[in-house]
């Protein structure tokens, strides 16, 4: 199996789906001539031409609406946001139109659009460019929210998202684009709504997604040295949330820590904790803890930035608390 980057896995997924289905097209800022702000769309303009790889003005609200309108009449747009920070300008189209059309038309109109781009922080991009908005979109009935952590999942999930009949918010990670992994070639679909156990363990469950998967895996390695066997559950899809996998894992380990990049208030982890306490209260041996980004706008200074992020030491400390091993 080929080892490729997350970026190229996404490129492969888009290319394959565009070859398969002429109604699929890509639009966004710098996706064509420039070859993509993060080079996800590299080479696509050459292969598919400007009608299917559409460079847009910097007009997030406008082109998101164009994507939704095209989807309402049967096209399958992939709307790229250069980052999800900019997508705030377009959130009216995503929330008020894409997520609502099926319902308020009584099932007459579908919006099979994918909104994609990098979310969360990278390095020293400061407050306006370092935000994780998945919980905003996951809050909205009518949307699906997908966040792959590995190249293989990036490909499999993006292909599934493009084929999905519902609007899918597909949040990538700038820091993930260069990560490498084995990716099956050709037809490879990862189902939306299914979490993945990235590491099996028995003592505690680390629930994470996107960039925090690697944080959790690193923490798990270090915990193993202490004789603690952590299970790492990668949610992969935030909505619909895979209750089954989460609950099965925590039922086994009896302790859980949710790790996410975003802010804590009403975050993804809050929903995960709700599901756990509601469904398997009696399986819990300790309160479920959360490791999140610091509840502040992202600072520019690199030391402050580092301190704000969820990292392995914070995860390890939380694990020790849920296992009653703190001194």
């Amino acid at each position: 199996m080929a080892v490729i980057t997350y970026r190229d896995a996404l490129n492969q997924a888009i290319r394959e789906e565009m070859r398969l289905d002429p109604s699929v097209f890509l639009m966004g800022e710098e996706v064509g001539v420039y070859q993509g702000a993060y080079k996800v769309s590299r080479g696509l303009l050459d292969e598919f031409g400007p009608m299917r790889v559409v460079d847009t003005p910097i007009t997030e609200l406008g082109f998101a609406g164009v994507g939704v309108g095209a989807a309402m009449v049967g096209l399958r747009p992939i709307v790229e946001f250069m980052t999800w920070n900019f997508a705030l300008l377009a959130i009216d189209q995503v929330v008020n139109t894409a997520a609502k059309m099926r319902y308020m038309s009584g099932g007459q109109i579908s919006v099979p659009a994918v909104f994609r781009g990098p979310g969360g922080s990278a390095l020293q991009l400061a407050a306006q460019h370092s935000q994780a908005f998945e919980s905003w979109y996951a809050h909205i009935p009518g949307l699906k929210v997908v966040m792959p952590a590995t190249p293989a999942d990036a490909k499999g999930l993006l292909k599934s998202a493009i084929r999905d009949e519902d609007p899918v918010v597909f949040i990538e990670g700038e820091m993930l684009y260069n990560t490498k992994g084995e990716v099956p070639e050709g037809e490879y679909l990862t189902p939306i709504g299914v979490a993945d156990v990235k590491r099996a363990g028995t003592d505690v469950t680390l629930i994470c997604h996107s960039k925090t998967v690697s944080v959790a895996l690193k923490a798990a390695e270090q915990l193993a040295a202490d004789g603690i066997d952590a299970e790492v559950v990668d949610l992969r899809t935030i909505r619909p949330l895979d209750h089954e996998t989460v609950l099965a894992s925590v039922s086994k380990t009896h302790r859980a820590v949710v790790v996410e990049e975003g802010w804590s208030f009403a975050g993804v982890g809050a929903q995960v904790v709700d599901v756990i306490q509601r469904e398997i209260f009696d399986e819990l041996d300790s309160p479920v803890l959360r490791v999140t980004g610091a509840d502040v706008p992202m600072p520019y200074n690199k030391h402050l930035e580092k301190a704000s992020k969820a990292d392995p030491p914070k995860v390890i400390a939380a694990v020790k608390r849920v296992m009653y091993l703190e001194s």
């Binding site: 009896h254 209260f281 009696d282 399986e283 819990l284 041996d285 300790s286 009653y324």
Partner: peptide
């Protein structure tokens, strides 16, 4: 903890007789 309560109930253990070692004397697994 909920789990400790459940296991104690399943096994007929009275939690009153168990020493809790968690925070504030919480009885844990």
């Amino acid at each position: 903890s909920p789990l400790a309560r459940k296991i104690a109930a399943d096994r007929g253990l009275d939690l009153q007789a168990v020493t809790g070692t968690g925070p504030e004397g919480r009885i844990v697994l």
